[in-house]
Amino acid sequence: MKRALVIGASGGMGYSIVKELSNRGIQVNAFARNRVKLDKLFHNDPNVTICSGDIFRLADLDQAAKDTDIIYQSANLPYSEWKEKLPIMMSNILQTAEKHDAKLAIVDNIYVYGRSKGKEVRETTIKNPNTKKGRIRLDVENMVMQSNVAALIAHFPDFYGPYAENTILNYTLNNIVNDKKASFVGDQNIAREYIYTKDGAKAIVNLSLHEQAYGETWNIPGYGVISGKELIQISREHTGFQKNVSTVSKNMIRFLGLFNRQMKEVVEMFYLNEDPVVLNGEKYEKLIGPVPRTPYSEGLKDTIDHMKRSEVLQ
């Protein structure tokens, strides 16, 4: 691969994919709407070309995709826009990939699997989403797999890491870093799976460099499961944070949803805090080798240090 396009390059996974590719000496077109943020993130990286534009404008995507071999799709939309805009967004990306004869590697979540019922989820697990958002994601997945584009879809648990701002853990970590009253979404005693964005980026780039990976879906697990209490304790030890961390319950989110459309959409996904989905990575390991897995203690410390540096620079 000589040149790649990363769509959604200013987000947590997009940023990490850009840096992973650049670190391998690959030229990268970093695409997102906000040019100021892209400049801030990548202005000193000689392997990165800034490409600001609108993902809903085919002309913008077409310009960004010139001379690229692989397109990495990591952009996302607010929950409330999924039904109307997610299929359009993916259609634009597929058209662009087909026009430029580029392969496509897609960052996806775990919503298509629905409830796990306590079982580890494999790629062969029947996808039976129990939410509207899961069904939308499954429809988009089918659109991709039925297209003429050589594509792979990587399913990840919830992210955390540098610039992963719109994530469930960032909601907690941001207040801890700023020494403010913090909250954790869901029962702090229930163990869930998360993935460090730098690990996720390594995994999807590894997959994208193997021809056998295309036309398939892949599960990329994190560093096992961890409870909210354990996550908070690691964060306390690294920051000296001493304030109480309260619990955000489903009823609290439901109440906030009466006044905030985005919070109303979050209620539907709360089942993941009650019946966590845990991914099995054996398929990846058979093709590639060990899944990149950074211990939570290291990943959280790096994320917190990055957040502190970002606060200083602002």
Rank of each mutant, 00 (worst) to 15 (best):
M1W: 05
K2Y: 04
R3F: 01
V6C: 07
S10D: 05
M13F: 10
G14Y: 02
V18K: 01
G25T: 04
G25M: 04
I26D: 14
Q27P: 01
Q27A: 14
V28W: 15
A30N: 11
A30G: 13
R35L: 12
V36L: 11
N44W: 03
D45C: 13
P46C: 01
T49L: 11
D54W: 04
I55R: 10
F56K: 08
R57Y: 09
R57I: 10
D60P: 07
D60C: 08
D62T: 12
D62S: 13
K66Q: 13
I70C: 14
Y72I: 01
Q73K: 13
A75R: 11
N76L: 10
N76Q: 11
L77H: 07
L77P: 05
P78L: 13
E81W: 06
K85D: 07
P87Q: 15
P87A: 15
M90Y: 10
M90L: 08
I93N: 02
E98D: 13
H100C: 13
A102V: 10
L104I: 10
I106Q: 03
V112R: 08
Y113K: 11
G114Q: 06
R115F: 00
R115A: 04
S116G: 15
S116R: 01
G118R: 07
I126R: 07
K127D: 09
G134Y: 15
R135E: 12
V140L: 05
M143Q: 06
M145H: 11
N148R: 13
A151R: 07
I153G: 07
A154T: 14
P157R: 01
D158W: 02
F159M: 03
I168K: 00
I176V: 09
N178H: 09
K181N: 00
D187V: 00
D187I: 01
Q188K: 11
N189D: 02
N189I: 01
Y194K: 09
I195F: 01
Y196M: 10
Y196D: 11
T197Y: 08
K198N: 02
G200Y: 12
K202H: 09
V205K: 15
H210C: 14
E216A: 11
S227R: 03
G228H: 09
G228Y: 07
Q233M: 13
I234G: 01
I234K: 02
R236P: 09
R236N: 12
Q242M: 12
N244W: 03
T247Q: 06
V248E: 01
N251R: 00
M252L: 12
I253K: 05
G257V: 02
F259V: 05
K264D: 15
E265N: 15
K286R: 11
V291R: 01
R293K: 12
P295N: 08
Y296R: 02
Y296A: 03
G299P: 08
D302L: 11
D302V: 06
T303S: 12
H306T: 04
R309G: 08
S310P: 00
